[in-house]
């Protein structure tokens, strides 16, 4: 490793650098965003997206994929805006039940050796259907404590930034630094080795899915705290956003190679990309297209950097 900056380091730097480049472009286009309130406004919706991305990351870490997280967050949002607001005990029980359901899904996928893509695809219908049953028409109200938390105005640094940093660091310590997290990640790298070392892959899968469910619940609650009401389709796009966020953040589809800090950065970058495009005054027809182009560009950069990465 004689090169001054190894490709590994460069690759790790790519997510924060692309976020920085995007921020600079936004500040340049719209200087008014470079303020406490501007940033608050820009980054508000990044918090629930980041939480959903972290949820997806736990699933990707054990070589699975969750195509239902968007529908799940929508369901949580509907429950939060109705039951949790009107009958807190019922709401809490329902949300705890959802986390348990996620753990159960992990067990089912592992025990029957099922493809997670298809199981979660099926679950996306289930979550969406339940959301429609809980809240047939858009509405509901956010519980006050969630509302006040999400609209907190701490001094100097806007709340979304604090929340993102705390989230990234907390999950980083949990998954990347702790001895427990090491075992969880190991299950993504070589499950057979874990089993041979006496660990239960079933328990690890259930733990990872439960963690995903837990962060999915947080995502839905945070979302309702911002929007104050919910509907059954509120977060459907989170499925694709969360996958893209993990990948943008340097995560990979197989092998347990993920990064919580990268995932949060990836999520924030995606959330900002939308604002950036509207500041560009792009023909609205091409807005989604440009979002796709940005995604391709960042990934292309990553590949260029990785090209130098050689096995020792």
């Amino acid at each position: 490793m004689s090169a001054p900056v190894s490709p590994r380091v460069l690759r790790a730097l790519l997510p924060p650098l692309s976020l920085a480049a995007l921020l600079i472009a936004i500040f340049w286009l719209q200087p008014r965003t470079m303020s406490y309130f501007g940033l608050n406004l820009l980054l508000n919706l990044a918090v629930p997206i980041a939480l959903a991305t972290i949820a997806q990351m736990f699933i990707l870490c054990v070589n699975e994929l969750d195509l239902s997280i968007g529908a799940f967050v929508s369901l949580v949002a509907c429950i939060t805006a109705t039951w949790l607001h009107d009958a807190p005990l019922l709401g809490v029980l329902a949300l705890a039940g959802l986390v348990a359901a996620y753990a159960g899904l992990g067990a089912l996928i592992h025990l029957r050796n099922l493809p997670s893509i298809v199981v979660t695809l099926g679950m996306s219908f289930v979550w969406l259907g339940l959301a429609v049953l809980v809240l047939p028409t858009p509405g509901g109200a956010a519980p006050d404590y969630i509302r006040s938390l999400m609209t907190l105005k701490p001094p100097i640094v806007p709340f979304p930034i604090i929340a993102s940093v705390v989230l990234a660091l907390a999950v980083h310590v949990l998954l990347m630094r702790s001895a427990w997290g090491t075992v969880l990640r190991g299950a993504g790298g070589n499950p057979q080795a874990l089993a041979r070392a006496g660990w239960s892959i079933l328990r690890i899968k259930m733990t990872m899915f439960a963690l995903a469910g837990f962060f999915g619940v947080l995502s839905g609650m945070a979302l309702v705290g911002l929007t104050t009401s919910a509907d059954a389709n509120i977060a459907l796009r989170y499925t694709l956003l969360s996958i893209a966020g993990v990948i943008l953040g340097g995560g990979e589809f197989v092998g347990g190679r993920v990064s919580p800090i990268g995932a949060v950065i990836g999520a924030v970058t995606l959330a900002l990309a939308g604002s950036f495009l509207s500041f560009l005054r792009l023909n609205p027809d091409w807005q989604i297209g440009a979002q796709g182009a940005i995604l391709i560009l960042v990934l292309a950069l990553r590949v260029l950097i990785s090209r130098g990465e050689v096995r020792r």
Partner: peptide, 10 residues
């Protein structure tokens, strides 16, 4: 996924 956004826009 990313390219589909472009086709959809087109």
């Amino acid at each position: 996924l990313s390219s589909s956004f472009i086709y959809q826009s087109a």
